[in-house]
């Protein structure tokens, strides 16, 4: 698999505080990578490092296979766009002027494409209004437009829906999906709003105390979090045959338990198992949300 970003043993120390602690991460090309963690876990610190705003204390990262200490990293960064924490926009310039400034910073020969960019982010009608008078959602969208100026194929968004109203969240979500599906842009989104990420991400990285606790694809996460009935039996040899006969999808967990991804008729199941000499010790409904999965990874209190 090709990776846009890989980190190896990345550390960042601020005086006595260690923000990143041996972080290893892999962002597959073409994915929407949801970077999940609590406040203060190190999400923004990592984004600052890979954006070139700060340098690691130890460890390394590679962008498109180029190590960060290599001189070619500045060329590779041209393929990247980022919105770090707050959108970086000139508040006394209009949306169009902000994009023109970024075009000049990029050294692009003309301003072609600016109207299309504004339309893409939904700011085609703002005219000469200065960015200082934009709503938070509009500024966020302008920040993304600025990040898209150089036609990057890798976009880093640091908590892009923070502070947005529901419509704003929907707009940003649809924009992100459009960028990924239509333009093939790899997107790294950091967030602690799990519900929103679950609608977007194809891959997840869970960070806690400066380290990646787990990296998992959305498919694997869905398999883990599927609603199921967890059954504990006395004889695991018998159970698969009975479930197959009943036409139920299941997954054997260990010698005594399995997850059944259906709603079994309890009476029929227990009779069928009893006929073959197998006893049911317990049955519980198992429904792990992304939220509970995250809590189980990083710890914390459950609130039922």
């Amino acid at each position: 698999m090709e990776y846009v970003l890989t980190t190896e043993g990345l550390n960042k120390q601020y005086k006595k505080y260690k923000a990143l602690n041996g972080l290893n991460m892999h962002v597959p090309k073409g994915s929407i990578y949801g970077f999940v963690g609590r406040n203060g876990a190190g999400k923004t610190t990592l984004i600052r490092l890979i954006s070139g705003l700060q340098t690691p204390t130890a460890g390394s990262y590679e962008l498109y296979g180029i190590p960060h200490r290599d001189r070619r990293i500045s060329d590779v960064r041209r393929r990247m766009g980022a919105v770090v924490e707050t959108p970086s926009i000139y508040l006394d310039l209009s949306a169009e002027d902000n994009l023109k400034v970024q075009y000049r910073v990029l050294g692009l020969p003309s301003y072609d494409g600016i109207p299309e960019l504004l339309k893409l982010v939904g700011l085609e009608d703002v005219g000469k209004k200065t960015a200082g008078r934009f709503s938070l959602g509009m500024r966020q969208r302008l920040g993304i437009a600025i990040a898209l100026c150089g036609h990057p194929d890798y976009l880093v968004l640091d908590e892009p829906v923070n502070g947005l109203d529901p419509q704003g969240i929907i707009d940003i979500r649809e924009l992100i999906l459009k960028l990924n599906h239509e333009r093939g842009i790899t997107i790294l989104i950091s967030s602690h709003i799990l519900d929103e990420l679950s609608r977007l991400a194809t891959h997840y990285g869970f960070i806690d105390h400066g380290s990646i606790v787990k990296e998992i694809s959305a498919q694997e996460l869905e398999d883990t979090c599927r609603k199921s009935v967890r059954i504990f039996v006395s004889d695991m040899v018998v159970l698969p045959g009975v479930l197959d006969a009943m036409g139920m999808e299941y997954k054997i967990l260990d010698d005594h338990s399995a997850d059944i991804y259906a709603q079994p008729n309890v009476t029929q199941l227990s009779l069928a198992l009893y006929e073959k000499g197998c006893e049911i010790q317990s049955m519980t409904e198992h429904d792990e949300s992304l939220e509970s999965y995250f809590i189980s990874l990083v710890g914390g209190e459950r609130n039922e």
Partner: peptide, 18 residues
């Protein structure tokens, strides 16, 4: 100072300017 208060200096660093 505006480069820092508006955060726009980040845009230059992100795209690879030294």
């Amino acid at each position: 100072g505006r480069e820092y208060s508006d955060g726009v200096i980040r845009n230059k660093l992100i795209i690879g300017h030294s």
